[in-house]
Design a protein around this nucleic acid. Structure first.
Length: 385
DNA sequence: AAATGCGGGGTAA
DNA sequence: TTACCCCGCATTT
């Protein structure tokens, strides 16, 4: 839309700056939460929007002190890449999410590339006049104003949830190794989620669930309890499960998910095992009158998961179509090869009338209680004794 | 353990 | 003054 298409009132709404003494108050349109804001963008979110409340972004943004308690400022940390610029299968590159915490980031940089064991390298963001891109957040009444300055000059890192899930997988690996040792079995225990990873239906789970979990070995089943899997871990597994191409009643959105866009590395694809845009606390949010729009023409993936996501997801409503994750060879290495610009999908708006609880959803899918078999029986593939 | 937010303090233009 | 950055601390996840 061109500026002249707006009337003066709209112009006023659009012309605000985060530093203005007064911000628009008669906001008629609130925006969908934008997961990947880039360039010089401004959004007005509902103060009920959980993602906005948490000042989330899929870019790795850290708090920056601007000596202004009314406006929260965050600056971009860039992306962590392999210093050898190694490629995984299909030319995929490593784009890790820089740890936000300084200490954790230093620790992270001492680690090795999950793909080739080469050193990792942090590519700083210099998208704002040589400085990192900055994001500003300001709460005013019923709205949360957002403004970004600068254009990211680096690939997108993995999302917060991807990073979190990767860590979780690692934990499971460690736990499984530990159990393995305790059981005095084979040196390397392998975990699998039988109903998730092993189906040859073209809907393999994220890459990093990969090969070492999937080798066709004889296995013994060990109760989750033995692994001491935390509720959060279980939820993450659940998330992956949920996203395996499930359609839900009331879904009016895309019946045919778009194929991943296999473009340049920066515009490749990533695993989107996240909830849809409106899955996060949908009923408590004001529903934006406009569908999300990105300059790419794609829709945002989802409101980045707030910490409550794990709790909320259990109760979330499934009024949308979850595109199946991209198929990947089960032989792939179980680490992150983050591709950005995942084809975003259109999700239908939630409505109270179509509220489903999680169990109902699972029954609909023939997965009572999200498939006890899968979640409660983590199968350890043990090497033969 | 990390993420997040706050605010003191420093530097440079 | 403005706009960065670094750091420690406290709280939350």
């Amino acid at each position: 839309m061109e500026p002249e298409d707006f009337d003066s009132e709209d112009k006023e709404i659009l012309s605000w700056d985060i530093n203005d003494v007064k911000l628009p108050q008669d906001v008629k349109k609130i925006d969908w939460f934008q997961e990947w804001p880039d360039s010089y963008e401004k959004y007005i979110y509902s103060s009920e929007d959980r993602s906005a409340q948490r000042h989330l972004s899929s870019w790795a943004m850290r708090n920056t002190n601007n000596h202004n308690s009314r406006i929260l400022k965050k600056s971009c940390l860039g992306v962590v890449v392999c210093s050898r610029d190694c490629s995984a299968k299909e030319g995929r590159k490593i784009y890790l999410r820089p740890a936000i915490c300084d200490k954790a980031r230093q620790k992270q940089q001492r680690k090795l590339c999950p793909n080739c064991d080469g050193p990792l390298k942090l590519i700083p963001c210099r998208g704002h006049g040589g400085f990192p891109v900055t994001n500003f957040w300001r709460h005013e009444g019923r709205f949360i104003f957002f403004q970004s300055k600068g254009e990211h000059d680096h690939p997108k890192p993995e999302t917060k949830m991807e990073a979190e899930a990767r860590r979780t997988v690692k934990k499971v690996q460690v736990a499984s190794s530990s159990v393995s040792l305790k059981l005095n079995r084979a040196p390397e225990a392998k975990v699998t989620f039988p109903h998730v990873c092993s189906e040859p239906d073209g809907n393999s789970p994220p890459l990093w669930w990969g090969s070492r979990f999937l080798q066709p070995l004889t296995y013994k089943t060990v109760k989750t309890k033995a692994l001491d899997i935390s509720p959060k871990t279980a939820q993450l597994m659940k998330v992956v499960t949920i996203r395996r191409g499930m359609k839900t009643p009331g879904s009016v959105a895309n019946e045919t998910p778009q194929e991943p866009h296999l473009g340049i590395p920066q515009a490749g694809w990533s695993y989107d095992f996240s909830p849809p845009q409106n899955a996060l606390d949908p009923l408590s949010q004001q529903i934006p009158v406009e569908p999300p729009s990105a300059k790419t023409g794609c829709l945002p993936l989802w409101p980045s998961p707030g910490p409550d996501l794990y709790e909320e997801k259990v109760h979330m409503e499934f009024n949308s179509y979850y595109p199946p994750p991209t198929c990947h060879s089960p032989q792939e290495d179980p680490f992150l090869f983050s591709y950005t610009s995942y084809p975003h999908h259109q999700y239908s708006l939630p409505g109270k009338s179509s509220k489903w609880n999680f169990d109902e959803e699972m029954r609909y899918m023939g997965l009572d209680h999200y498939n006890n078999e899968m979640l409660l029986n983590l199968s350890f593939k043990m090497n033969p004794i």
